[in-house]
Design a protein around this nucleic acid. Structure first.
Length: 407
DNA sequence: CGTCCACGTCTAC
DNA sequence: TAGACCTGGACGG
């Protein structure tokens, strides 16, 4: 579940299912989890949540008076915050206690019987939680809900060596892009067709100048013609609307689009809802290229990789792919797809790049084989790409649906 | 059966 | 810049 949008949707989920619910007792941790126990217990408490970038904070708040009702003078326990990071597979679920999801590693129980439990579920256990924790200090402002400081934090620190890296790698640096993950970086760069392996500073320098220019223009205008408040706010709105999207504004608006979908965001279980898959334009989309970046993460993109592309890295095998149909010019696409199938039948392969920008649906990757010598064991071949390609075409859906359940 | 892949950090050589 | 940390789905033989 976990990039910025999924963390935020998790916080909304928690607030929705816990609204008006009274929890009670101790917090329970699974045996297998290596995360710390959460030393909190209360006769009656409430749970609320908030998110920031790729973190989510639960607040456990004892209900006034309820803890000392049997005469004890102990008083109410203090509220406690627990900060979560979701790793690759974390999410929250609210279920009856006898229907705990598998891998429910932290559980909060309702006072009312039959008991229900709010669970932190984490299949791979890369997720972490910190009792009495706070937002990690090294992480930057939230791309979704602290846009102004996010933008400023990037543009005022362009000398940081973090921006010596290719833009696609810098985008995963949570010190500057708190909330961006692997699917968002692909979608964002794709919108502007920015080659992923261009130096980050090269892309961002221009935005600093742009912001300065705008600020100056605005100041000049205000000095020359004092505007009325109403006029001001109007012109502001208009400007925001019109402003052509740039890389940093897309780091804000693209994640917000995922929230707008109203689904669950990234969710392999796809319980009946495919809106997220349809929303993806690049990540795991058939016809797009992919390369391993310097941290061995798959970068999805279209067109040019850019000058800093890892020279020896290959595109990973594509298993899960989404084939786009797009109601629009689906005719053209169909034609193209058929052509491809022809090619494959004939067994000859040629070019790679999309000759047009169309999504092709089949046989896409291999190409970027610009590989140089240095290859490890598995690279025995380098010759005709024939075999590799054959093995490669095969699109397919991202997952098949399975279990369903109400949220 | 086995290999590869996955929405992310962490820390150790 | 490699591993390490994990489970499980998709695919290949």
């Amino acid at each position: 579940m976990p990039e910025g949008p999924e963390l935020h949707m998790a916080s909304r989920y928690v607030n929705r299912v816990c609204a008006g619910v009274v929890f009670s007792g101790a917090v329970e941790k699974s045996e297998v989890s290596k995360n710390p126990e959460v030393p909190f217990a209360s006769e009656a408490y409430r749970i609320s949540a908030t998110s920031r970038g790729k973190e989510m904070r639960l607040t456990l708040t004892p209900i006034e008076g309820e803890d000392s009702k049997d005469g004890g003078e102990t008083g109410d326990p203090q509220p406690m915050d627990v900060v979560f990071r979701f790793g690759m597979s974390g999410f929250f679920r609210f279920t009856p206690e006898d229907e705990l999801p598998k891998h429910a590693h932290l559980r909060f129980y309702t006072r009312e019987r039959p008991r229900q439990a709010l669970s932190f579920v984490d299949i791979r256990r890369f997720g972490t939680w910190e009792p009495n924790g706070n937002w990690q200090p090294e992480r930057g402002p939230c791309i979704m809900f602290e846009y102004h400081s996010f933008r400023e934090n990037v543009l005022l620190n362009l000398l940081d060596r973090a921006f010596d890296r290719p833009i696609c790698e810098a985008l995963l640096n949570q010190k500057y892009f708190n909330g961006i993950g692997n699917y968002l970086r692909a979608e964002i760069l794709y919108r502007l067709k920015i080659p992923p392996f261009v130096k980050a500073r090269t892309v961002l320098d221009g935005l600093l100048l742009k912001d300065h220019a705008e600020k100056n223009a605005k100041r000049a205008k205000e000095e020359s013609t004092p505007v009325q408040v109403s006029e001001m706010s109007l012109s502001k709105k208009v400007k925001v609307k019109r402003e052509t999207p740039d890389l940093l504004s897309l780091c804000h608006t693209v994640p917000l689009e995922v929230l707008q979908l109203g689904g669950k965001g990234y969710d392999p279980e796809q319980s009946g809802d495919s809106s997220f898959q349809e929303w993806l334009q690049c990540y795991c989309v058939s016809g797009m290229k992919s390369l391993r970046d310097h941290n061995r993460r798959t970068m999805w993109f279209q067109g040019d990789a850019g000058p800093m592309a890892p020279k020896n890295s290959k595109s990973p095998k594509a298993k899960k792919r989404v084939t786009k149909q797009g109601g629009d010019e689906s005719d053209d696409k169909q034609v193209v797809q058929e052509k491809f199938q022809d090619n494959k039948v004939k067994g000859d392969k040629e070019e790679t790049e999309g000759k047009t920008g169309l999504k092709r649906g089949k046989g896409a990757e291999r190409n970027l084989e610009a590989t140089s010598p240095v290859n490890k064991g598995k690279t025995i071949q380098k010759r005709k790409t024939a075999t590799a390609e054959q093995a490669e075409r095969r699109s397919g859906r991202m997952t098949r649906a399975r279990a369903k359940q109400g949220s």
